[in-house]
């Protein structure tokens, strides 16, 4: 999961719905595992499979036209529960980047902690991207982490996206927060004793 980030160019999977909550990303009945593996199989479970576990053809993950490392979703993606299982499901399925015009806070942190990059774009960029994907499911998007840019390779539209330089460093180098905190114990003890 700690694959280092640099420049990613990929086709996209479009999910043009708003307020996609973490209960849809991974329903509660799949939260009973005690490891981080296997959640990708149940990503968007109740939109992806019917009650008899047959694939629902109309859902985008079951449409062979769409594939790629980038999930493109409507506004307020990942709202609701704090379950990190949502990030594990997205990473487990093979997505490395989620593009939306707005992310819920806890989901955004959980994604970053699992080396999934949330890219916030403007409403206009998002609308243009959905349109490009609809016209050509094989169109590509380039996400350049060092430059902090995202580019729609069809229209050439490009935007700068925000990420703090600490998290950027973590993603580029495959480092996590616990490594950082553990190296910082003296400061914690000093705070406790003040």
């Amino acid at each position: 999961m700690k694959e280092k980030f640099n420049i990613t160019t990929s086709t996209c999977v479009p999910l043009p719905l708003e307020n996609v909550d973490t209960d849809q990303i991974i329903p509660a009945r799949f939260l009973k595992a005690t490891t981080k593996e296997g959640f990708g199989d149940n990503l968007f479970r109740d939109w992806r499979y019917d009650k008899q576990d047959n694939e629902i053809e109309s859902f985008v993950l079951n449409n062979p036209l769409y594939s790629g490392k980038i999930l493109v979703a409507g506004k307020n993606f990942g709202s609701g529960s704090s379950r990190e299982h949502a990030a594990w499901a997205i990473a487990g399925y093979g997505f490395r980047i989620v593009v939306s015009s707005f992310f819920a806070d806890i989901f955004r942190n959980n994604a970053l902690n699992n080396f999934v990059l949330p890219v916030v774009v403007s409403d206009a960029f998002l609308a243009g991207l959905f349109e490009s994907i609809q016209k050509d499911p094989k169109m590509e998007v380039e996400v350049n982490l060092p430059a902090q840019t995202i580019t729609n390779k069809v229209t050439g539209a490009s935007e700068y996206f925000d990420i703090n330089s600490y998290k950027k460093l973590c993603l580029e180098n495959g480092l996590d927060d616990i490594d950082f905190l553990l190296s910082n114990k003296d400061k914690i003890e000093a705070w406790e004793n003040k």
């Binding site: 806070d105 806890i106 996590d176 927060d177 114990k185």
Partner: peptide, 22 residues
């Protein structure tokens, strides 16, 4: 505030969490 499991691990291991101030 609610946190993810990686963050639970941060607190278990250091009693601290890394957060941006809202």
């Amino acid at each position: 505030f609610g946190i993810g499991t990686s963050e639970v691990e941060m607190v278990l291991s250091s009693q601290c969490i890394l957060q941006s101030k809202p």
